[in-house]
Design a protein around this nucleic acid. Sequence first.
DNA 1: CGGCAGGTTGACGTATACGTCAACTATGGT
DNA 2: ACCATAGTTGACGTATACGTCAACCTGCCG
Lengths: 142, 142
Amino acid sequence: MKNMPSEKNKKNQIVDSDAKDLYSIADLAGELGISTRTIRFYESKNLLSPERVGNTRVFRKRDRARLLLILRGKRLGFSLRDISEYLSLYDTDETQAHQLALLRTKVDERLELLENQLADLRTTITELKEIRELARTGAPDI
Amino acid sequence: MKNMPSEKNKKNQIVDSDAKDLYSIADLAGELGISTRTIRFYESKNLLSPERVGNTRVFRKRDRARLLLILRGKRLGFSLRDISEYLSLYDTDETQAHQLALLRTKVDERLELLENQLADLRTTITELKEIRELARTGAPDI
DNA sequence: CGGCAGGTTGACGTATACGTCAACTATGGT
DNA sequence: ACCATAGTTGACGTATACGTCAACCTGCCG
């Protein structure tokens, strides 16, 4: 992932998120270190549905909280599609029973994938160490 | 007062003010038949204080209600300065006692002014009728 | 390697907002 | 007539938002 323009971040670091209840797209992008372009992209993927005042998006606290969830999900390695499914349950299931079940399923899947990758990586490292040891002791050609 | 561009009104006539709680400057201008320029002018006269989301004004229902009061005051012939004084009391006096007293004072002043103008107009009309009668009967030159 | 999918970003034309500096209109007073 | 005031409006340069159409980057798979 590429770095965002630093002047944009610098411009918005004074945003006091605790006191505000309305945010522009530039406010959120600057605060969270993503581009306005990315926020609009997420909306096009139905991850976000901010209000429009005139033609301009206006975000409420709950939109900001939702965006924070999206970013956290991404950091944990979930796809936007997974996150979207999760959030659509968040939107509709007041008891959150199905939401928790889905979350466990997704987390299990993700853990399994990461553990497989970890095992692969360990295997690769072990094999490389073995090859290095053979090269050092002058053992048979590989 | 000049007419506003009719295409602007036409564009915004579908605004459902009862359901919304946030308005853009163009929303309000279109709905109320004034220009965005005039709304910004009122703000510069401290008659209005809308929120900013980013650099953009966002108006809440109470801002809209306040703007309606301003326009009503103007229709009754009050100056913007009078209206501003009235509204500043509206902002600070929860019991509205001073507000009502000031309103009565302002209305009395306005009525007195209008009644004086009415008396002047009646006098002028009476004098013109007298001159017309003299011209018709051939009485002494004026 | 190439292809694909996911995710992000860029280019760009259009629209609207903004603030500043004036200009215009109407009214009243001298 | 001129001047002052109140109220509105215009011109204009700047900034940012918007949506559309691509392009780019990364990782994975065959």
